[in-house]
Simulated scan of single mutants.
Amino acid sequence: MPDRLPQLDEASFQPIDHAKLLQPARSSHPPRILLLYGSLRQRSFSRLLTEEAARILTRLGAEARTFNPRGLPLVDDAEPDHPKVRELMDVVTWCEGMVWCSPERHGAMTGVMKTQIDWIPLSIGAVRPTQGKTLAVMQVSGGSQSFNAVNQLRVLGRWMRLITIPNQSSVPKAFAEFDDSDRMKPSPYYDRAVDVMEELVKFTLLTRDRADYLVDRYSERKESAEELSKRVNQRAL
Results as ranks from 00 to 15, higher is better:
Arg221Lys: 14
Glu199Tyr: 04
Asn233Val: 08
Trp159Gly: 00
Ala211His: 09
Leu35His: 08
Gly132Ser: 07
Lys230Glu: 14
Ser146Ile: 04
Glu220Cys: 00
Trp100Ala: 13
Ala176Trp: 09
Ile163Asn: 10
Glu198Pro: 01
Gln131Ser: 13
Arg4Asn: 05
Phe147Lys: 09
Met1Pro: 02
Ala225Cys: 03
Arg235Lys: 11
Trp119Gly: 02
Leu122Glu: 06
Tyr190Asn: 06
Pro80Met: 12
Asn167Trp: 09
Gly111Asp: 07
Ser28Ala: 14
Gly97Trp: 12
Arg231Glu: 10
Lys230Cys: 03
Ser39Ile: 10
Gln145Lys: 13
Ser46Met: 03
Arg192Thr: 08
Ala236Ile: 05
Gly71Trp: 15
Asn167Arg: 14
Asp182Leu: 11
Phe147Gly: 02
Val196Ile: 11
Cys101Phe: 06
Val232Arg: 15
Asp182Glu: 13
Arg59Leu: 12
Asn148Cys: 06
Met98Asp: 00
Glu87Ala: 15
Met113Val: 05
Arg231His: 11
Asp77Gly: 01
Gly61His: 08
Ala19Asn: 07
Leu156Lys: 02
Arg86His: 01
Lys20Asp: 05
Arg210Glu: 00
His82Leu: 09
Arg47Cys: 03
Thr110Asn: 06
Leu228Ala: 15
Arg161Phe: 11
Thr50Glu: 06
Lys185Thr: 09
Asp179Glu: 11
Pro188Ser: 08
Arg41Trp: 11
Thr134Tyr: 09
Glu199His: 09
Pro121Arg: 11
Arg231Tyr: 10
Glu199Ile: 03
Leu88Val: 02
Ser102Met: 03
Arg4Lys: 12
Thr207Gln: 05
Val99Ala: 03
Thr207Val: 13
Ala11Tyr: 04
Met89Phe: 11
Phe67Met: 06
Leu162Ser: 00
Ala236Gly: 01
Val92Gln: 06
Val91Pro: 01
Asn148Asp: 09
Arg183Trp: 03
Gly143Phe: 12
Leu122Ala: 01
Arg59Asp: 14
Gly61Glu: 06
Leu49Asn: 02
Val99Gln: 04
Thr66Met: 15
Glu223Pro: 00
Ser144Glu: 14
Gly157Glu: 05
Met89Arg: 15
Ser27His: 11
Asp118Phe: 12
Pro6Thr: 09
Gln23Gly: 00
Ala149Trp: 09
Asp3Val: 04
Arg128Cys: 05
Ile163Thr: 01
Lys84Ser: 07
Ile16Thr: 13
Asn151Glu: 12
Arg47Glu: 13
Lys185Gly: 01
Ala225Arg: 15
Val194Glu: 10
Pro6Tyr: 12
Thr164Tyr: 09
Gln139Val: 02
Arg217Asn: 04
Lys202His: 08
Thr110His: 10
Val171Trp: 07
Ser46Ala: 07
Ser187Arg: 13
Ser12Ala: 15
Tyr218Phe: 15
Ala225Val: 05
Gly142Cys: 07
Val127Phe: 15
Leu35Asp: 02
Lys173Met: 13
Asp90Glu: 15
Thr134Asp: 06
Gly38Phe: 08
Met89Asp: 04
Thr130Ala: 13
Pro166Met: 08
Ser181His: 14
Glu10Trp: 02
Tyr189Phe: 15
Ile165Asn: 04
Pro80Val: 09
Arg105Lys: 07
Ala193Ile: 03
Ser219Cys: 08
Pro83Asn: 10
Arg59Pro: 05
Lys84Val: 00
Asp212Trp: 12
Leu34Glu: 00
Leu200Arg: 11
Gly125Met: 11
Gly61Phe: 11
